[in-house]
């Protein structure tokens, strides 16, 4: 009998703890494994110049102000480029979680642009395992600058871009993206060669704290012609996120903030100091 009492006392608390653990195991058995979507592969809708796979959530509205200043190697006289700025104002809206539309106006050549961003795949783990996020972007740009005689009618001032953005978030810090791109120019100068330009972009971000990340982006044109004096677009930058704002500060050899501009019309050589300081400020409502 004495043994029984000792045993009972010994077993009792063990049994108590075990029961709750069992109950938790039982509860976990009842519920289906959830789908864990990769949230916030990038902090903003732009990596630096180009888009990321981030689409706006349904009914969310984003206002994006972007500046690219002049060249740093312009020296003190131009205050390292700060005297001259290209500005783009952008408005973006999430029609649904997977479809975002946007409008923009660029001071450079007084260009208007519009785009449609459609999410094809969303990275997830758990019950449904999808290794990548994939987004298709179609955009158009329309130049309204006056006094350009070579453009004979409105159609000839149009540019189209088609992009597939493929990204993966590797853990919480690192995200990488590749961006196969096709740009079609309705009318070109003879030395520009072909109407269609194919390019491959690569980029990524590395979070250094919860709210700050380092970004980089490079677009390589695949079918350049002899005599084309443009350069491939290179950009490095930092994202700072504070509540509803994302501040992106960067250095790039491109001055345009839309695809047809920074991919096909980058005139600066990054490694010779033709570098522009720029920023994007995004506010989501």
């Amino acid at each position: 009998m004495r043994y029984f009492i000792i045993l009972a006392f010994l077993l009792f608390p063990v049994a108590c703890f075990a029961q709750q653990d069992d109950l938790m195991a039982l509860l976990n058995d009842q519920v289906e494994e959830p789908i864990n979507y990769a949230e916030a592969t990038f902090k903003g809708s732009r990596l630096i110049n180009g888009h990321t796979v981030q689409t706006r959530k349904s009914k969310a509205f984003e206002f994006l102000i972007s500046h690219r200043f002049g060249r740093l190697n312009a020296g003190v006289y131009e205050l390292f480029g700060l005297d001259g700025a290209n500005i783009r104002l952008g408005f973006e809206y999430g029609l649904t979680d997977f479809l975002t539309i946007g409008l923009g106006r660029n001071s450079f050549e007084k260009t208007y642009d519009s785009f449609l961003k459609f999410r094809l795949l969303r990275q997830s783990s758990g019950r449904v395992n999808v290794p990548l996020s994939m987004v298709y972007i179609s955009s158009a740009a329309f130049k309204t600058l006056k006094g350009q005689e070579q453009y004979t009618n409105h159609v000839s001032k149009l540019f189209y871009t088609h992009q597939l953005l493929i990204a993966r978030k590797f853990g919480s810090k690192l995200s990488l993206q590749i961006m196969p791109t096709l740009i079609h120019r309705n009318l070109i100068l003879e030395e520009q060669g072909k109407n269609d330009v194919y390019a491959m972009g690569v980029g990524g971000r590395m979070k250094i704290t919860q709210r700050i990340s380092l970004n980089s982006e490079y677009y390589h044109r695949l079918n350049t012609v002899v005599g084309d004096e443009n350069f491939n677009s290179i950009a490095v930058g930092v994202d700072i996120e504070t509540g509803g704002h994302v501040f992106q500060l960067h250095l790039t050899n491109s001055r345009a903030m839309i695809e047809k501009g920074f991919i096909t019309e980058t005139t600066g050589d990054f490694f010779k100091g033709d570098v522009h300081f720029g920023f994007n400020v995004s506010r989501v409502f």
Partner: peptide, 29 residues
């Protein structure tokens, strides 16, 4: 015993929900 998925919390502002999961709760971990 009670269990709830952190990503199951919905907010009025979708960006807030993203920050809640990504920056505060680290719901992937």
């Amino acid at each position: 015993v009670i269990s709830m998925p952190i990503t199951g919390f919905t907010f009025e502002k979708s960006l807030m929900q993203e920050h809640f999961n990504e920056n505060y709760m680290e719901s992937d971990k």
